[in-house]
Design a protein around this nucleic acid. Structure first.
Lengths: 211, 211
DNA sequence: TATTAATAACTGACTGGTCAGTTATTAATT
DNA sequence: AATTAATAACTGACCAGTCAGTTATTAATA
């Protein structure tokens, strides 16, 4: 018989991450207001008071989680974009695949929803998310479109406005799945493929244009 | 001095609508959980107990509001679509304008957000909204696309998947504005115009195709 | 290497405030 | 006078945040 765990353990380093993981799970399932800190504590294998050793308040815990999850991925994507040397069509296609993957991670999808929900109640979270995730991501797509225009692969258009046309369906699709559950009628891979074709046509440089 | 209103008035017919209007305002500003029924009552010029004369619970009030707002517009849109006789491009353009207008009504926009937020906590609301608003609206767009394909105005494609590419940016744009506030960089009208052009290119029938 | 002192991690039990929902009563309408 | 719309005052449950006390760990001392 393995030695029984002592009832208490001191694991200063591991606690915050465990608490945040538990919080992410519950906040994304139930939303901020409906999540009880006692449940987070239980899920993290810790007492509620312990949470307050590491986080000042429920709101601060929530913010820490958002910062952690949101900040962790965009850097890698930007590096990929910077390094890429092929056609802009391939670049965009690659980016789509990668965004498609990210929006399939349940925690990330769920957190997106919670941030939307709680933005009004947490202005600083909203500002952080807007600048560090939404606008930043949109800017990256806009830059790719500019690249395509510069290389004459794409027709001339407003890069930022077009970036929205291009990227919003993917986000919204993930959000809809999160909220309403999977649509039986249309599977996500098929949608993504169709969308890529669709937007490439929308972006395509005119082959035989007057003047 | 005008005759002072009696402290109490009996206005059985008017109360529910007034309570729902007040609820819509507050729920959309603060979300479901953060809205106090006492505040709804005050905004409606009524006591909290009066709300319970007309609605069984906070949740039922919320549902009644969603049903009311959500159900009220789609019918008109569908009728417009049914009657339309011009080109499918004009039909789609007209529909976009009308959706663009609807998503500018602050209460509707805000309610969209709240429904997304609370769908998890109110499965029946989610189901209602999914069937009566989301899928129904998507279906209408898909049908327009089918019409365009049938009339050789549009290239052949999956109508439902494409409907998402077409309509989601408009919804998402409204949602983003709602959540993050207006983006200074891009004004909504310009976006809408650009988006219309973009999707019409994506849909356009191939003029000179092999075979 | 034991023993003990000091510290820091952790917890159970409590508190104060909030708010959905109820009840007893009042006043308008018939 | 009987009915019913409306309300003020109340109740019970819930939960974020606190705190006094407990246990693990480390370090100093014998």
């Amino acid at each position: 018989m393995p030695k029984a765990q002592p009832r208490r353990q001191r694991r200063k380093e591991a606690r915050p991450a465990e608490i945040m993981a538990a919080g992410l799970k519950l906040f994304s399932e139930r939303g901020f207001a409906a999540t009880r800190l006692e449940d987070v504590a239980e899920a993290a294998g810790v007492s509620k008071a312990t949470i307050y050793l590491y986080f000042d308040s429920k709101a601060e815990l929530f913010k820490a989680i958002v910062r952690d999850v949101a900040g962790s991925r965009i850097g890698a994507v930007e590096e990929f974009i910077g390094r890429f040397e092929g056609t802009t069509v391939d670049l965009l296609t690659g980016l789509f695949r990668s965004i498609g993957e990210v929006t399939c991670v349940p925690e990330i999808r769920a957190l997106m929803k919670v941030v939307l929900s709680e933005a009004g109640n947490f202005p600083d979270i909203a500002a952080f998310y807007r600048d560090e995730v939404a606008f930043r991501g949109l800017g990256n797509v806009a830059r790719i479109i500019e690249r395509g225009i510069a290389r004459k692969e794409f027709r001339s258009c407003d890069p930022v406005a077009t970036a929205q046309s291009v990227i919003f369906p993917i986000i919204m699709n993930a959000l809809a799945q999160e909220v309403f559950g999977a649509k039986p009628e249309i599977d996500p891979d098929k949608f993504l493929a169709g969308h890529i074709e669709f937007i490439l046509r929308g972006l395509a440089a005119d082959k035989e244009q007057r003047a």
